[in-house]
Design a protein around this nucleic acid. Sequence first.
DNA 1: CTGCAGTGACTTTTT
DNA 2: GTCACTGCAG
Length: 655
Amino acid sequence: MSGSQLNQAQYEAVYYRGGPMLVLAGAGSGKTRVITERIAALVERDVPHDAITAVTFTNKAAKEMRERLFKRLGDAAKSLRICTFHALGLSMVREHAELLERKSNVSIFSGSEQKSAMRSVLTDMRLPSDADQVDRLLGRVSLLKNGLLDVEENNLTIVREAYDALLTRMNAVDFDDLMLLPIRLLSSHRDVQALWQARCRHLLVDEYQDSSRVQYAFIHLLVESKGNLTVVGDDDQSIYGWRGAEIKNLFQLEEDFPSLHTVRLEENYRSTHSILTAANTLIANNGERLGKTLRSNLGQGKPVRIWESPNGDEEGHRIAADIKARKAVAEAKGWDDFCVLYRASFLSRPIEIALRAASIPYHVSGGLSFFDRAEIQDTLAYLRLMGNPADDLAFMRAIARPRRGVGAKALSLLGEFAWKQECSLFEACLHDDLEHRLSHTLREFGEMVSGIEHLLIHGEPDDAFDALLERTQLEAAIRAEAADEDEAERRMNNVMELRRWWLRHREDGGDLASFLHHVFLASSKDDDDPEGQVRLMTVHAAKGLEFDHVYIIGVEDGLFPHKNALEENRLEEERRLMYVAMTRARYRLTMTYVRVRSRYGTKEKTTPSLFLNEPDQSVLRWVDKDVNSEEAKEEIDDAMAIFKAIAEKAKKNAR
DNA sequence: CTGCAGTGACTTTTT
DNA sequence: GTCACTGCAG
């Protein structure tokens, strides 16, 4: 964003002191700057740090905010409470754990642990426990927990209770609990509520349009109707409705906070006028919105290009050629000035192939996360077990890797014993009364883990981690299970990355429990900011980012807007998604569609998306339909420029 | 418990 | 067309 002066609307949003405020922040309107400046203003006004809380949805946003405040305020920023909703929930759970039948070293169950827990519940209840049922019930329990399921299903309630009880027994919570337990806490303990209301005397919420019903309830418990609540959001960028985000939370604020003051940030510092006009006139077709028109500061710019290609392969090659051309004519400095966006991830493949063929470096965002890798899960299983001995799932994963000959049979006997003794599986291993064919193996395992735990707590951080890899024979197992030397190296590198995190965390004075919490709440993609590569990602993943050159591919009927979304009556959300995609572009925006789209090995005839017809056509150039246009001529000039550039390079190489 | 072959699904996914 | 998961045989 240009300049250091705040514009009038930004100034108002930063310094307003009259209570609840809604900041409607359009794309590229300096939203993060407004939030950080507002926090800085509070600090400079001598509001105690402990009375300020800022919540975001992603770690990335929280991190960015913290970094900016650090630059702005120096070390004073350290003591500010800036975190995600879930991290805030976790700190409440930890602080008041005893009121929730938990301990402060509580485990956080995500994905696979939730599945294991649910599978175990269903098996115990003698219900079908195949993967489909586990997924279905987890989904329904989650809906139930989030108040999104009205039907009274007796069975479901019982399953939920059993699932919750199991998690409680293992001193664990799932992601839903990180919001629900704090809500329970705040609504049933006045003193706790008063404590946190004081800590949220100034509460700022980012990306408010993504909040769910539960998060709304959470916010309400933290701020009274005249409180200093600042919510920043953009109804036009609400794209997570399918996941429970309720855009109406934004519309409803006025009712719940009658003195609500609304500020609109409509000055855009990102995109050219052409791009904004296209985006504005597209989103104007939505009925459910508060209304906002972005104004550009950057001049007219190039028209938005629309390309037709015969098929996906051609679409890819053409984009690859164009990227080279833009770079050759110095419209871009580096590969990372380019981004290719798509509605569905299967569209990335032909683009990848084309970029590779053109020797253009690229990076696909999303995909497997660091923490989903088997070697990381295995290593973490040991750490989790040491961090929370009640975590039976961690125990089961740890004892199975590497193989110790302890199979399902031995585990179920151990489970029975633990049940009778009312202890965890891990404690059962070390129990004096344990009599079992494998009790020697189990005891040895228990003592080994205890020994490493002792090192982790009292020893040197690096020794402890190495002991973990060595004494458990994890490293040997990881290497043995790898298909080849390269894979073994890669896997161990991942583990070493985890080791570095652990060392850094210990240097900062953190303990094992906080390390695990950090790891489980950290998004896998925190550090994924690859430099010098063309970025490929879904539109959802692109929210909050910006690029000089953006290509939106697959802008076809049935794909974008997506057929399933239309069936579920979510055309407006699809339009917002397109709006988000378009407003990522700073300088040049290109939208492409194909005549024949290959999918599942079949070829389907397609028609261009209605989202290409809705924008003001005067800022669009349908290049293929208008070969004599200025833009088409320009393209030819650009193509000539690449040929020249390539020829020159070839000459240089020849010398 | 492991490895392979057959089967089915395929929109987006923070924490 | 590809991948991931299931189920059966070894």
